[in-house]
């Protein structure tokens, strides 16, 4: 017999979670109460109520998979209430992000958009400066956490991108124009230029932008999260005339 354990602040809450998990009314579950739980103060010293539930009728073919991830289902209250509501990752991500924003005291609306290889969560609301941070570091941090939280089971291959007021697009445009400007400069001076401390995503944009340019090459240098990017001319003397974007000689 397959049992799943559920936790909640009260026995009722745990039962409700069990119902949500199996997606059946209370009557269809066999429930054993393992511990009643006690309130504590502000969540400190509180004991959670634990119950053990199983389906009475064994029409749970689809639930076999659910049993595998039972750790996941007895997860945090906030996340769990959310997870059982809708299985799709996009919605999980949305709820997780909303919970996070709520606790950051940012009131904002989250819109989900599924794209081919990623899920975009678009945040609209006040405090966008706070959410973006210096060079988008706050936004990247939130995105990292959301990705990590949803990928821990390894079932989600899609990347989650969090965006505030088209910040990502604006940043990309700025980086592309920066890349072109630097490329011009490198070609003019024939000297390599190092641009400092960028994260992987930003570096990637620069690499991709200048990839098609035959007269120069880009490399990443340094260690860790914030590596530097080097734009250098490619054997300039041999390559004259090859680069399509090469400026007229002065």
């Amino acid at each position: 017999m397959d049992y799943i354990e559920f936790e909640g602040k009260t026995v009722d809450e745990a039962i409700r979670k069990a119902c949500e998990h199996f997606d059946v009314p209370r009557e269809k579950l066999s429930i054993d109460i393992l511990s009643e739980g006690s309130g504590g103060f502000l969540g400190l010293g509180s004991k959670k109520a634990r119950i053990r539930a199983s389906l009475l009728t064994l029409d749970l073919t689809a639930d076999l998979f659910e049993h595998e991830k039972r750790d996941d289902s007895s997860s945090t209250e906030a996340v769990l209430a959310v997870e059982s509501k809708e299985d799709s990752i996009a919605l999980k991500a949305k709820e997780l992000l909303e919970g996070l924003l709520l606790r950051m005291h940012v009131s904002a609306e989250v819109n989900v958009r599924e794209e081919k290889d990623c899920i975009v969560l678009d945040v609209k609301g006040n405090g966008e400066g706070l959410l973006i941070g210096k060079r988008g570091q706050n936004l990247d941090a939130i995105q990292h956490i959301v990705n990590k939280a949803l990928n821990k089971q390894g079932e989600n291959k899609k990347k989650i991108v969090i965006d505030v007021e088209s910040y990502r697009k604006r940043r990309e445009e700025a980086l592309v124009s920066l890349a072109h400007r630097l490329a011009q400069q490198v070609k003019k001076t024939k000297k390599k230029i190092t641009v400092g401390n960028m994260n992987a995503h930003d570096r990637r944009i620069i690499h991709l932008t200048l990839q098609g340019d035959n007269s120069l090459t880009t490399k990443s240098r340094g260690e860790g999260e914030m590596r530097k990017i080097v734009i250098m001319p490619l054997n300039t003397s041999q390559n004259k005339g090859e680069g399509t974007k090469e400026p007229p000689r002065e």
């Binding site: 950051m104 941070g133 570091q137 706050n138 990247d140 939130i142 956490i145």
Partner: peptide, 15 residues
């Protein structure tokens, strides 16, 4: 991840 948590925390604290 620890760094990301600290970043979020300091952002929230600024407020």
């Amino acid at each position: 991840t620890a760094k990301a948590m600290r970043t979020i925390l300091s952002a929230a604290s600024t407020k």
